[in-house]
């Protein structure tokens, strides 16, 4: 056994700069969502939102090896994915505030947050909605001879949708470069995955579609990154899809209307002790990637970005009322 074997995959595999950036993104996700929550409570954001606080490692580690050419499809709990894929929080806040400068020009909001330029094909309000779309995106890559891959985020709830099974089956028969990443946070709204799903692990479903399936600790940045590293390599090599299940937990309720009747306080507090950010940060410091001061600087940087983002969003103009049908179809030059 060598020293190398005791060093987590991520520390070995990624450059210190990349790891520092990963930590910054995890802080950014956490702070962004806390900022969004606060803005929501102040009435600056209407509608609802689904927070992924507690799941930051899954989002960021999954996207570690992706370039802008690689695609992701996201879910209703998609802020983390969006930031992980490289979006600017100012434009995200602007979208949440319904502003014209938002990523969706105020037409989408939290549930449809997207950043097509960084390869994020969008959060989706329909559980399972993104699964076949991700397969289609992978089909495009294969058909056009590109080596980019598509990451399909979905929750434990979506694994019981027909679209999940149809999508996995087609991805497998056509050997498409897509990785299905299930963020199993234990509950589909209030219904426990253990109750709703016939198999113990969602990754077990992979066997039905002749693809590798692996279940990892979703709060362990390195474990997620390693699983994805293998799946992405397989996809890029033309060997087809994989299913990765990240076990994680959302600290907040399903949405802003959740009165938390289905989980105990103990359970929530227990998971909060397994904070993926604190864990990753400690790991980086322990392995000398950065020191405490540097880690605090990273967090402060993220804090500043969130504050600037809120200011940008507040100052941004709202869309014109007359433009309600703008973007329904392509603008046709007269």
């Amino acid at each position: 056994m060598t020293v190398q074997d005791n060093i987590p995959f991520a520390i070995r595999h990624f450059s210190p700069a990349a790891l520092r950036e990963a930590l910054r993104k995890m802080h950014l996700i956490r702070l962004f969502e806390e900022g969004a929550e606060e803005s929501y409570m102040r009435g600056l954001i209407h509608g609802t939102m689904h927070l992924s606080i507690g799941q930051e490692a899954s989002a960021v580690a999954t996207c570690m090896e992706l370039t802008d050419a690689d695609k992701i499809t996201s879910t209703h709990r998609g802020h983390g994915h969006c930031i992980a894929k490289g979006a600017d929080v100012g434009r995200m806040f602007a979208e949440f505030f319904g502003k014209e400068t938002g990523y969706c020009h105020g037409r989408g909001g939290s549930m449809h947050i997207a950043d097509v330029k960084t390869g994020n094909l969008g959060a989706n309000g329909i559980v399972g909605g993104g699964l076949p779309i991700a397969v289609g995106a992978a089909l495009t890559a294969k058909r056009l001879g590109r080596d980019d891959v598509t990451i399909c985020f979905f929750g434990d709830g979506a694994n019981n949708e027909g679209a999940f099974h149809e999508a996995l089956n087609m991805a497998a028969i056509w050997k498409l470069p897509v990785i299905f990443v299930c963020e199993n946070n234990k509950y589909g709204m209030s219904t426990p995955a253990a109750y709703a799903t016939a198999v113990p692990n969602i990754a077990d479903r992979a066997a039905a579609y002749s693809m590798p399936g692996v279940t990892v600790d979703g709060n362990d940045f390195s474990a997620v990154a390693e699983a994805l590293h293998i799946a992405i390599a397989r996809a890029r090599a033309g060997d087809g899809p994989s299913l990765v299940e990240n076990l994680t937990y959302r600290w907040r309720g399903h949405s802003k209307s959740d009165r938390n009747r289905y989980r105990t306080k103990d359970e929530i507090e227990d998971w909060m002790t397994r904070d993926p950010i604190a864990r990753f940060r400690a790991e980086l410091i322990a392995h000398g990637v950065l020191d405490t001061a540097e880690a605090e600087a990273v967090e402060a940087e993220a804090k500043q970005a969130v504050a600037d983002g809120v200011d940008f969003a507040k100052a941004s103009p709202a869309p014109g009322i007359g433009d309600v049908t703008k973007f329904v179809h392509a603008e046709v030059a007269a």
């Binding site: 938002g102 990523y103 969706c104 037409r107 989408g108 094909l121 969008g122 973007f327």
Partner: peptide, 9 residues
């Protein structure tokens, strides 16, 4: 999709 994504798709 085009609309939700503000004309970006």
């Amino acid at each position: 999709l085009r609309y939700m994504l503000g004309g970006e798709a």
